[in-house]
């Protein structure tokens, strides 16, 4: 599904190298987790993959189902099946959540040469999916993320994911700012979307999210590189001993 090879990235504005040769391969239907201390480059990886400005790729490649992602505009990556659930979902005053969702869904359908969804069909689908995430009609009417609580924002991200049906989902610290109940709800939303044709990359600081979204593979990232890869037990090890042991072990 997603294949990252020797990815080197620096900040455009300053001469600061963030990623120093990331290699990662995620198969169809797999759930991978990336853990790592602050500043290790986890969020940068998600931004670079989704096409945010301000980063310069100096080396390497990233392909989604064989197509080179790094040359595409962010909207092309989305149409190709990539989705990033933001760590800090953006508030957009003046744009209704429903308008936003419909514009996005139809833009992607159009980019893929499919017919746009009619207003009625769209409404039916969105209501059903919103209900599963306990998102009420009021939240759909309000401007995108404006005045939403932390939990509401994250649920709104998952709703977008459910509506857009991407092939490759990146979750950037989706657990941050959530209490246990909210995290469970979000995790259920994610689990409901797991399928043989859809892969996930879950970025997190803590193991607790991985209790709810069970990964197949866990990677530890430090100083812009993946330094260790293992099964779910690796996350437990981090939880028990912190990152220090692993960092020392790898040297």
């Amino acid at each position: 599904m997603l294949e990252i090879k020797n990815l080197h990235v620096k900040l455009e504005e300053e001469d600061k190298v963030i990623l120093r040769g990331v290699d990662l391969k995620i198969g169809a239907g797999e759930v991978h987790a990336i853990m790592g201390p602050n500043g290790s480059g986890k969020s940068t990886l998600s931004y670079v993959l989704s096409g945010r400005d301000g980063y310069e790729v100096t080396e390497g490649s990233a392909t989604l189902e064989g197509r080179e992602l790094l040359e595409m505009e962010p909207e092309e990556r989305a149409a190709a099946g990539l989705f990033l659930a933001f760590q800090y979902p953006v508030e957009i005053p003046g744009v209704g959540n429903m308008t936003f969702l419909r514009t996005a869904v139809n833009a992607q359908r159009k980019a893929r040469g499919e017919d746009e969804l009619s207003a009625g069909d769209f409404l039916k689908v969105v209501r059903e999916k919103a209900k599963a995430l306990k998102i009420d009609a009021e939240m759909l009417k309000r401007p995108v993320n404006v005045g939403f609580s932390g939990g509401e924002k994250k649920r709104n991200e998952i709703l977008q994911m459910a509506m857009l049906e991407p092939r490759m989902c990146i979750l950037d610290e989706t657990d941050s700012g959530l209490d246990v109940d909210a995290m469970k709800l979000v995790a259920e939303g994610v689990n409901a979307l797991r399928s043989a044709g859809r892969s996930f990359l879950v970025i997190t600081h803590y193991q607790r999210l991985l209790d709810h979204i069970k990964p197949d593979v866990v990677h530890i990232m430090a100083a812009g590189r993946i330094i260790k890869t293992g099964g779910p037990e690796l996350a437990l090890e981090v939880e028990a001993n912190g990152y220090a042991d692993i960092l020392n072990e790898v040297g």
Binding site: R52, E75, A78, F83, I92, F100, T103, A104, A107, Q108
Partner: peptide, 9 residues
């Protein structure tokens, strides 16, 4: 960027 990342040109 947020809008673009959702596929909006």
């Amino acid at each position: 960027f947020y809008l673009q990342s959702r596929g909006v040109p």
